[in-house]
Simulated assay, not measured.
Amino acid sequence: MLLTDFDYDLPEELIAQTPCEKRDHSRLMVLDRHDGAVQHEYFFDVKKYLRPGDTLVFNNTRVIPARLIGHRDETGGKVEVFLLRRTEGNKWEVLVKPGKKAKIGDVIKFGAELTCRILEHTDFGGRVVEFFYDGIWEEILDRLGQTPLPPYIHEKLADKERYQTVYAKENGSAAAPTAGLHFTKKLMGEIKDMGVNLEFITLHVGLGTFRPVNEENIEDHVMHTEYFHIDKDTAERINAARKLGGRIIAVGTTSIRTLESSASADGILPAKSGETGIFIYPGYKFKIVDGIITNFHLPKSTLIMLISAFAGREFTLRAYNVAVQKRYRFFSFGDAMLCL
């Protein structure tokens, strides 16, 4: 299967630069993958397509201020260090710009209270660094770090909490699980009152989610792994709901990847923590996910491949072309899609 099979034309002006004024007032495209129907709603209408006994599964990760701007200790040259994930202690996998000058042993300073030393290269072109500081890491990072908005967003974010979901809890992501940005606490309460179960799992979004595909044959692409966690009580409730015939509807591609990488062949979900590098593309047989809430994704990305695996490639691309024609807003701050 070729990379060009997942391409589509997107006018640049449809890339959303700012979030919708009200989270749940973004538009919602509803796809029925069984009969090919496409409907157009607003996100608060999502309740119309849910029923008692369904389970919505959210990723409760929280974006950290992952972009640090520092200077080389020896030359004073400017350096950007982008945190991907903690490996152990104060050691992190990071991306460094400019990367060619990032040598093992180099020391980078981020003001008087924080420095790091480059320890080794990684197999994806990044680095492993160790940080040195006095004080509380989270407080220092909050003071010195910047919220890492995607490169296609050029507008400054007035309220940094708009790049967090309202249920964000577990610190660790380099990017937001953007499908969840459409939910308000009020909407979630109304959905719960309908008899729909709300469950929370964790995947810390890193390079695996947004790393571009460079291989023309997509099967040659290797995903970078990301940390996930599903606790025992959550797994038991999801299994019980599924046994009673309820649909498991994943909010976002990170929730899909967590569920599908953990579930057994017969769709039983265990309590589990670890790293997942699952790459889902057409031909994949879903084990546990019955529905998806997602945003509109970049051409040729692993995310549009995942949605194509669920809804079918031709149907997905046809829906994307309709979204372009109807002037939907795309990507992180854009509109949403529900596929059942």
Rank of each mutant, 00 (worst) to 15 (best):
L141V: 01
A168R: 00
V166R: 02
K156V: 04
M194R: 06
A336V: 05
N214Q: 14
F310D: 09
V128N: 02
A175E: 02
K285L: 12
S262M: 06
V81E: 05
C339A: 11
N60Q: 15
G76P: 00
P65V: 04
H204V: 13
T184F: 07
I218M: 12
G172K: 08
G76W: 10
L198R: 04
A16L: 12
L31Y: 01
M188F: 02
D233M: 07
Q164H: 15
A263M: 09
R313G: 00
R329E: 10
G135M: 05
D193H: 09
S173Y: 14
G36E: 13
T302D: 08
P98Q: 09
E93K: 08
F131Y: 09
S332I: 00
I153S: 07
E21H: 14
Y320M: 08
E13P: 13
E120F: 10
V63G: 07
L119H: 03
A311W: 04
V107R: 15
T316S: 11
D231K: 09
R329A: 04
L119C: 08
F315Q: 08
L84I: 07
Y328L: 14
I288N: 01
A263P: 12
E216Y: 12
K22A: 15
Y42P: 01
N217L: 09
A168Q: 00
R86P: 09
D142L: 06
I249F: 13
R85K: 15
A235I: 01
N214I: 09
V205P: 08
D45V: 08
N59Q: 05
R237K: 12
T209R: 13
L198Y: 08
T302L: 06
F333H: 05
R162L: 10
I280G: 05
A309Y: 04
K156D: 06
F183N: 06
S301W: 14
D5Q: 14
G111E: 04
T202D: 02
S26Y: 02
I307L: 15
K91T: 03
H204F: 10
F82G: 01
A319S: 13
A271W: 02
R242D: 03
V222K: 12
T178Q: 06
S273H: 12
V251C: 15
K192F: 03
Y49L: 09
P98H: 09
A179N: 06
A336G: 05
E199N: 11
L187R: 02
R51E: 12
L207R: 00
S264W: 05
E139P: 00
I278C: 06
P270S: 08
G135L: 04
F330I: 02
E216V: 14
K243R: 14
M188H: 02
F310L: 07
H224Y: 11
I108A: 07
L50F: 13
Q146P: 01
K160W: 03
K103T: 01
I108D: 05
T115C: 06
R67Q: 10
H204I: 07
F124N: 04
G99V: 08
H224W: 10
M223T: 00
F110G: 09
I304Q: 05
L203P: 10
P98A: 07
I64L: 07
L338Y: 15
L207T: 00
L84G: 04
T115Y: 05
R51A: 12
